[in-house]
Design a protein around this nucleic acid. Sequence first.
DNA 1: ACAAGTTCGGATACGATGTACGCGAACGAG
DNA 2: CTCGTTCGCGTACATCGTATCCGAACTTGT
Lengths: 254, 254
Amino acid sequence: MAEDSEARSEADKEVDKEVEEHESVWQRMERPTRPPRAALTHDRIAEAAVAIADAEGIDAVSMRRLAERLGVATMGLYRYVRGKDEVIELMLDTVIGREAQVASAADWRAALRESAWGLRAVLLRHPWIVRISTWSGPLTPHLVGRLDGLLTSLEHLGLDADTRMVVVGTVSAYVNGTVSTDIGMVEQMRNEGVSGMNELRHLYASRMKWLLASGRYPAFERYIREGVRKDESEWRFELGLECVLDGIAARLGI
Amino acid sequence: MAEDSEARSEADKEVDKEVEEHESVWQRMERPTRPPRAALTHDRIAEAAVAIADAEGIDAVSMRRLAERLGVATMGLYRYVRGKDEVIELMLDTVIGREAQVASAADWRAALRESAWGLRAVLLRHPWIVRISTWSGPLTPHLVGRLDGLLTSLEHLGLDADTRMVVVGTVSAYVNGTVSTDIGMVEQMRNEGVSGMNELRHLYASRMKWLLASGRYPAFERYIREGVRKDESEWRFELGLECVLDGIAARLGI
DNA sequence: ACAAGTTCGGATACGATGTACGCGAACGAG
DNA sequence: CTCGTTCGCGTACATCGTATCCGAACTTGT
């Protein structure tokens, strides 16, 4: 599979090139001119790009890197995508389609809640998504499919179409915003090469200490001193989410 | 003093070195550089970078471009910043400090509401912020200042420190998430060179039509047909925000 | 006032990126 | 069997971030 093409080393390619230059017509004639390589498909491209991004972050996804992983020349990719932006679109759609099913629960609240938790899990599994979901227009098929599912769970509640969309948008905004913050730390951890929460805190320590030393942020300082659930991001997410759902129910009378 | 340094263990020195390496721009900025000399200052750098980003988008902010605008050689910038990331940090802090004051209203609800509207305005004015505020979770002074202000408005309500932070985080997440979506369109408009909402819709038309033609998204289709407030992003923002505030009030009993 | 040392900004260069362009080979339909 | 379309390759270019070294200008100590 992809491993085969990946296995071809740089040295191999060089040898190939040299041989090609010096060999006779006859040799060239009898060899299948095109090595039987795996064909490219949009799926394969997306899959490979997602794999790279998951392993090394979105910045590691370059056209060259991607082509190399697929055992293909860089420009070969451009037969299938108009540019890197489309690769990103494919990546997003692939992950959403594969992992972000919208829950179909009985009542709207359970449906929204489960979908929110599900999306959160997906975003944490693929942290690069939060950096790209606002890059390009959100009109990929699976994204619309997810949106459709959420809207469906809000029908027959007496809300008009505009309000239904606001409800979905509000919950989605909350999830995206919250998870973005959490992921900011994860990303920073990768960038700095640290691997644990404590190491990260140590890394921030100097900056934080300096900020607090100014004495200009008493309320923030109180949080640093008094807060005891700084690591419990699930607890935070749940409390915030329930607030949002409560508010929707209260204000819209559903 | 000398004794102190003598007494300092090898490990301590290592820590010092590490701390120094991770020192933020802000810390370094505070140490006075020999003054009347500089043609360049952190302020000037930030100001110029913001101007470029406002005019042509964040992607137009390159070290070369920035230096050119400041009438300086590219590498001259590196005396003041460790790299492009720090330029971004400076930009963010500059704008937040200049334009994102936290409202100090009587009750927490008004304070949060006004701050949310204010932040929304800032983000719309500088669309590039939403693309960088989640890049890294930079604790810039003005960002912490804003956070501190928001936390202050929640004191004396009987909430513990963790819960106060959740409230602030929830509202902020909503604002960021919502505005991100709106800005997605704005950015796309710049990229494609269109200038009006209608042109953008026309640009999306084919994609949209194709998506709907599949018939797989009935609920979404209903929104397209029935929704009459698709352009009223302020209305959407307000409704969602009030839901969030309602929910906070309801669930936390404040 | 002069020497020593620090700081500023400049120039060059390297590796990596996205992609425009044109080519030859492979394949499916007439 | 041919011919047009598709596929993938290779070269080339502009641009990016930044490592490294340098000379000149200013501050400071004597």
